[in-house]
């Protein structure tokens, strides 16, 4: 049998039915495999290990718990994690543009929102894995230094980390689609909304995701004491995070549906 007829029969036997789970599975596969280059592995390892290792070596002599919490909560959860989300989600489409591989994806039989949402969910899963490993490293550092209740502290952070990555990721993905200078815009957003409006003691501070995350973390008393924050209603905080995520994802999907991203102007950061 010739190659031609064999190929023809194989292709005819192979049903081609584009569907969202298939799109998601394909993009997830390409996403996690793309993270396993040596260059990216070094970056991932540094994300996972640097802060826990620093927290291990820089405990104050007086109160180890407080130093540990400053690294875990103030530095990692409230500062580094949003920046990790900004780089991961903001660049999720633009990295494909820069590598010039987006044309292989956008010419596949799918709606553009399906591509965007699959990219978001794939990066969400990957960033959750990295975040979980980072907290695991914190747990090891805290345990080795004998910090009280390390497992509960880290578990509480882990519970909040999931919605945090989800919300920061959605915001970052919109910034990434809106402009190639998404890092600058993200930092401006962080200073204005999260650190600026978020500190205003009126209801307007509900616009800041950080406040909802703090109110979720404050449900565990040692974290409430550390943050100096009153525990909020869990459902209210979660609803705010979910609604924000949904709204940003809808905006992003609409934007991606109508806007072109393969013009050369868009291909540089």
């Amino acid at each position: 049998m010739s190659h031609e007829s064999t190929l023809e029969s194989i292709l005819q036997k192979t049903p081609v039915r584009p569907n969202f789970p298939g799109i998601l599975a394909g993009i997830w596969k390409l996403t996690w495999k793309s993270q396993l280059t040596w260059k990216k592995i070094y970056g991932v390892l540094s994300n996972i290990l640097v802060l826990p290792v620093l927290s291990y070596f820089s405990f104050s002599f007086g109160d180890d718990s407080d130093a540990f919490l400053r690294f875990l909560i103030d530095f990692y959860m409230l500062m580094v994690l949003p920046i990790i989300c900004l780089t991961a989600f903001g660049g999720m489409v633009r990295d494909e543009l820069q590598e010039d591989t987006v044309c292989f994806l956008l010419t596949r039989p799918m709606k553009r929102w399906q591509f965007f949402l699959s990219k978001y969910l794939s990066h969400l899963a990957w960033t959750q894995i990295i975040g979980a490993l980072t907290l695991l490293a914190f747990a090891v550092a805290g345990t080795l230094r004998g910090v009280d209740d390390t497992p509960m502290l880290v578990l509480s952070a882990l519970k909040v980390q999931f919605p945090a990555i989800m919300a920061y990721g959605a915001i970052s993905s919109l910034l990434g689609l809106a402009t190639k200078k998404y890092l600058v815009l993200g930092l401006v957003y962080g200073f204005v909304v999260e650190f600026g409006i978020g500190q205003i003691p009126t209801n307007i501070n509900t616009l800041a995701m950080t406040n909802h995350l703090k109110s979720l973390m404050a449900r565990y008393q040692p974290l409430a004491d550390h943050l100096g924050y009153e525990p909020g209603r869990m459902l209210t905080a979660l609803a705010a995070l979910v609604v924000t995520t949904g709204a940003f994802l809808i905006f992003s999907s609409v934007l991606f549906t109508f806007r072109e991203y393969n013009h050369s102007d868009e291909m540089s950061k």
Binding site: P15, V16, P18, G22, G26, I27, K29, L30, S34, P109
Partner: peptide, 17 residues
């Protein structure tokens, strides 16, 4: 960083194979 078979499999799934 990808091998051709991995790439084709990913693109194939996206295409609905």
């Amino acid at each position: 960083h990808l091998k051709p078979m991995d790439w084709l499999r990913g693109l194939g799934q996206i295409s609905g194979i």
